[in-house]
Design a protein around this nucleic acid. Structure first.
Lengths: 156, 156
DNA sequence: TATTTTGTTCGGCAAACACAGAACCTGAAA
DNA sequence: TTTCAGGTTCTGTGTTTGCCGAACAAAATA
């Protein structure tokens, strides 16, 4: 049973909304959405402008951004001047998680700095800060090992 | 050695920038920054407007938002009409991490939906999608147990 | 009752940003 | 050497958003 046109269209728009909420542009999300539900292995620039009904400039800009963060991979063919695009087959969602943990590292380092600026290292706020730092230090130390378990389990 | 005025001022601005990048307003970040380095246990509304040189409206709005997400806790004193504010002593950073994982759940559910819309469940994109879903399913199942180890280790 | 304190809320402005359209570029083909 | 295909970059515009100031509570005080 072939999915309805509207189901796909909805999916694309939803992808737009989801990624927009994550701080990416709506259009970039739509591109990803289309790449996910298109049954072609790779899609041309022109097809994107048409199916998403967007301007070339918007597609161009967002596509470049997606290629930059390696979510999308350009694909070329001999004797064809066009560039085609596909979901990067090696998007590393594990790496994506790791990058998010790095945000936490930034935050944790900042907390340490805050702690160092406090006069009384034993008052309520200081205690709170050091408790937080303690937890994050633990988390940042342990999470790579935790994530490695995935590889282990897959081998079995 | 008492920290320089400027070190604290810098810290506050940096906190603003960090939280802004996380999608919170700069002003909310500054409030948190000040609460972290102020040596008072709790801080009045008025003090915030003065030290951050911001309007009452901005402080009011951002403070309410921070109280709403339970990063900041209001504190009142008998015989005092003012409300004081402090870092919520039980900000749950573990819970914060968990909430971020919920974003991943949304994404993962969306990927499953995308997968269901594909005609050929064995082509490249489908494989990529199912690989991703597999990893995220694993992650979402296992991470609470992983995080619980923190409680265990602390008990020892 | 009038005034002050302690905020909240509303209207508006300025900056940021996503997108569109058009001008522009580059390399192949005619 | 023009023309065209395939994009990219620049400029303008509508929308969103953070912040401010001013108007507006509400409750204590005078």
């Amino acid at each position: 049973m072939i999915p309805e046109y509207n189901e796909r269209a909805n999916f694309i728009e939803e992808t737009g909304m989801i990624f927009e909420r994550l701080g990416v542009t709506r259009m970039a999300g739509r591109i990803l959405g289309y790449l996910m539900v298109s049954d072609k292995e790779h899609v041309s620039f022109d097809e994107l402008t048409q199916v998403l009904q967007a301007s070339k400039s918007s597609i161009s800009t967002n596509l470049k951004a997606l290629v930059n963060v390696e979510f999308v991979k350009p694909h070329t063919l001999p004797g064809d001047r066009k560039t085609y695009y596909m979901l990067s087959p090696d998007i590393d969602w594990r790496g994506y998680i790791i990058r998010r943990f790095e945000n936490i590292r930034t935050m944790n380092d900042h907390f340490k700095k805050g702690l160092s600026l406090r006069v009384n290292p034993k008052d309520q706020v200081s205690k709170w800060l050091s408790g937080t730092v303690e937890f994050y230090d633990w988390l940042l130390k342990e999470y790579p090992g935790f994530m490695d378990q995935w590889q282990e389990e897959k081998k079995m």
